[in-house]
C-alpha cells in the first residue's frame, strides 16, 4: 500500500516537475567583494529576499551570502576557495577584479562547481558572465534625446570615476551615439565620480565657459548635482538624463509637477544579483545556458516615474527583483 502511494506520488512529482525538483538539494553561495554603498546594500537585500523565498519553496537547499571585509582580490580568492571546501554546488560572484580571481575560479570549476559572475565579472572562460552592456546604456541616452529633441543641440557630458572601465564604456557609448546623430555636439565634459556633490562642483566649474546646453548626458548618481549647479548659476534647466537614484527621481517628480519637465532615467537594478542566482539555478537544473548573458537595463520614463519613486527607499536606487521566468527569458535572448 505504502509503496503504491509512494510510486503514485513519485509519478505525480514527475508530471508536475516544472524543472526545479532537480535543484532542491543544491546549495548556492554568493561571493561578494564589497558592501559599502547603497547599490551594494540593495543588491544584498534583494538577494536575501528572493533566495530566501526560493529556499522556503524548496527550489534550492541553501543560498548563503558572503561578503569580504576588505574588498581585496586575494581575500576574495581565499573566500571562493573556502566555498569549494564547504561543498557548494554553485558560486555566484561579484568580483573584486576581472582577472585576479581566475586561479580560484578555475579551482572551483575543476571541482565541478558552477560559477556565475555578474556586475563585477571575471574573464576565466569556465565561468558564466551576466554582464552589463554599458556601451549600449550610454548610447540609449542619445536614442532618447534624438526623439525628445530632433533638432539636436549642445550636450554636457558628466563622466564617472576616471580609470574605471565602466566610465570608459558608458562614455564610448555616448560618443558613438553622438557620431550617429551629428546635430548633437558635446560642448564640454567633466568627471562627476558618480556622486552628486562632486558632479555639482564639476558642473558649476565648467558652466560659465559653455554655450546654452540642451541636454546633460550622465552616468548615474550625478543628475541631481547637475540640476543644482544649473539652478545655482541661474541658467535654464536642460534635459538631464537621470540614473535611477532616489534623489534624482524625487527632483524629477517635483519638476514634472511644477512645469511638466520631461526626461528619462536609466541604470542597472541592484536586483541583478537575483538574476545571477536564477541563472545559476537554471544551469544546475541542466539547462543549456550560453556563457555570456546581458543584463536588461532598468529604464524609467515619464509615465513610470511615480510608481518607481514610490518603491525606491530614501537615499537608495530604483530596484527590481528578477524571477526564474526573467532568467529564462534572458537565457533565451542570448541564444
Amino acid at each position: 500500500m505504502t509503496r503504491t502511494i509512494l510510486m503514485a506520488s513519485a509519478a505525480l512529482a514527475c508530471l508536475a516537475g516544472t524543472g526545479f525538483a532537480d535543484t532542491s538539494d543544491k546549495r548556492i553561495a554568493l561571493s561578494n567583494n564589497y558592501a559599502g554603498n547603497s547599490w551594494r546594500q540593495a543588491m544584498l537585500e534583494s538577494w536575501a529576499k528572493v533566495t530566501g523565498q526560493a529556499v522556503t519553496d524548496g527550489v534550492v537547499a541553501a543560498a548563503d551570502a558572503f561578503t569580504t571585509a576588505e574588498n581585496q582580490a586575494t581575500e576574495q580568492a581565499a573566500q571562493i576557495q573556502n566555498m569549494i571546501l564547504q561543498g557548494y554546488d554553485a558560486i555566484v560572484v561579484n568580483a573584486a577584479s576581472p582577472t585576479a580571481l581566475n586561479g580560484a575560479i578555475k579551482e572551483a570549476c575543476d571541482a565541478g562547481i558552477i560559477v556565475v559572475s555578474f556586475d563585477g565579472i571575471v574573464d576565466e572562460p569556465c565561468a558564466w558572465r551576466v554582464a552589463v552592456d554599458f556601451e549600449a546604456m550610454g548610447k540609449s541616452q542619445l536614442d532618447y534625446l534624438k526623439t525628445a529633441m530632433p533638432d539636436g543641440g549642445a550636450l554636457l557630458e558628466i563622466r564617472g570615476l576616471a580609470g574605471v572601465f565602466v566610465d570608459d564604456a558608458i562614455s564610448a557609448g555616448i560618443h558613438a551615439g553622438v557620431e550617429e546623430n551629428p546635430n548633437f555636439t558635446i560642448a564640454g565634459s567633466v568627471h562627476g565620480d558618480w556622486a552628486q556633490d562632486v558632479a555639482q562642483k564639476a558642473v558649476a566649474g565648467i558652466l560659465p565657459s559653455l554655450p546654452e546646453i540642451a541636454a546633460v548626458v550622465t552616468q548615474g548618481g550625478d543628475g541631481y548635482g547637475a540640476a543644482q549647479a544649473f539652478a545655482a548659476a541661474g541658467r535654464p534647466t536642460p534635459i538631464i538624463i537621470m540614473g535611477n537614484r532616489q534623489d534624482e527621481l524625487k527632483w524629477w517628480k517635483e519638476q514634472k509637477d511644477a512645469n511638466g519637465y520631461t526626461t528619462m532615467s536609466v541604470s542597472i537594478a541592484p536586483g541583478v544579483s537575483t538574476l545571477a542566482f536564477w541563472v545559476a539555478q537554471q544551469i544546475l537544473d541542466g539547462k543549456d545556458v550560453p556563457k555570456d548573458l546581458t543584463v536588461p537595463f532598468l529604464r524609467i520614463d515619464q509615465d513610470t516615474l511615480e510608481a518607481n519613486l514610490e518603491t525606491t527607499p530614501e537615499g537608495g536606487v530604483a530596484n527590481v527583483e528578477y524571477s526564474q521566468e526573467d532568467a529564462i527569458q534572458v537565457i533565451e535572448a542570448a541564444k
Binding site: Q72, A73, T74, A77, T99, A100, L101, N102
Partner: peptide, 17 residues
C-alpha cells in the same frame, strides 16, 4: 607565486600584504 596562483595580475592585487 601570487601570479602563479591567480593566473593574472591587477595593480592592487596584494595591497593587503
Amino acid at each position: 607565486a601570487l601570479v602563479g596562483l591567480a593566473t593574472s595580475a591587477d595593480a592592487n592585487i596584494a595591497l593587503r600584504y
